Computed example of a mutant assay.
Amino acid sequence: MNLANVKLVVTDMDGTLLNSNHEVSDKFLSLFKKLKSHGVLFVAASGRALYSIEEKLYAIKDDIIIVAENGGLVIKDNEIVSSVAIENKNVFLIDDILKTLPNANALYCTKNAAYTSSTSEPLLKLLSEYYNNYQIVESVHDVTDPIYKIAIYHEISSEKYVYPKVQHLESDFKVKVSANHWVDISENDANKGHAIQLLQKLLQITPEETMVFGDYNNDIEMLQSAYFSYAMENAHPFVKETARFLTKNNDSLGVESVLEELIKAKEVNIHS
């Protein structure tokens, strides 16, 4: 496959494009301008909320496509391309299950805010980074906006203590370990892979013309949607098994190093 043919670059945010301080590098912003000059489209695909992604990529937010809430929302040119919220009956069903799990702290994610009834101090501290538009509610019944994702936080490990208790829901929902402390539940079509495939169809771009970067299990479907699929060095073992290629970790500019190769391939192609 020819790297110079890539037309679409998709990257996860935390653990991938962002460093351990949740920052985007100046180098990436410089490379983004070059990608844009070569006609390459860029997608930020994250479990984060729309407003959180826009805040992190504020300098370029009007020039990118955003896949938020693990694929629940797809925004292009400031318009909603796809919206897959959890049906109300399913929200209440999942909520009833979570109430039976000790130390499982539920966060209900909507387009413009996140809601929780948890009093977990570590969770509330994290929300200022990931979901700064959060509100404390008595119960999920107080949330009136469509819920795109239910994120479950465990102070030690959601993969170890929460996922095994909700794994049985995988027959009806997307259940993803999205980080050490988080498990995300959404409708089946609300996943990053489905969002990327929708965009590929809309933009008439093939998997062979698509480059994807990811580090955790909620990235697996979108990695499977691209030939140029890259796992970060810091990625979950399942992600490394899925991806075709490996790059450096998120603190060593792993995404940027591959984008430099892509730009060089584009420039060589122009001059050849």
Rank of each mutant, 00 (worst) to 15 (best):
L124S: 02
F92V: 01
T119H: 10
E129Y: 14
S120Y: 10
L101P: 10
F92Y: 15
C109M: 11
E121W: 02
S118G: 09
S120G: 04
A104Y: 02
S128F: 13
L126C: 10
K99Y: 07
E121D: 10
L107M: 05
P102V: 05
C109K: 02
E129A: 12
L123E: 05
L124A: 03
A106H: 06
L123M: 09
P122N: 07
A113L: 04
F92P: 04
I97M: 06
S118L: 13
P102W: 03
L93W: 05
T100S: 12
A106M: 10
L93S: 07
Y131K: 03
Y130M: 07
Y108V: 05
T100C: 10
L98F: 11
T116A: 01
Y108M: 03
L123I: 08
I94S: 10
E129N: 14
K111L: 02
E129F: 10
N105H: 15
L124N: 00
Y115V: 03
N112Y: 11
K89D: 11
N90R: 02
E87T: 02
K89Y: 08
K89Q: 13
T116M: 03
L123T: 08
A114Q: 09
S117F: 13
L93P: 11
S118F: 08
N88L: 15
Y108S: 00
T110Q: 00
A104L: 09
L98C: 08
Y115W: 11
E129D: 15
Y108H: 03
L107C: 12
N88D: 09
Y130E: 08
E87D: 13
P102M: 06
A106F: 06
A114G: 12
N105S: 12
P122W: 06
V91E: 02
Y131H: 14
Y108P: 01
K111H: 01
N88E: 15
L123R: 03
T110K: 04
I94V: 12
S118Q: 05
L107P: 06
N88Q: 10
A114D: 04
T100I: 07
N88R: 15
I86D: 01
N103L: 13
V91G: 00
L124Q: 05
P102R: 09
K111T: 10
N90M: 04
I86M: 10
Y115P: 03
F92L: 15
L123Y: 04
D95T: 12
D95F: 03
N112A: 04
L127A: 02
E129C: 11
L98M: 04
A113V: 02
L126R: 09
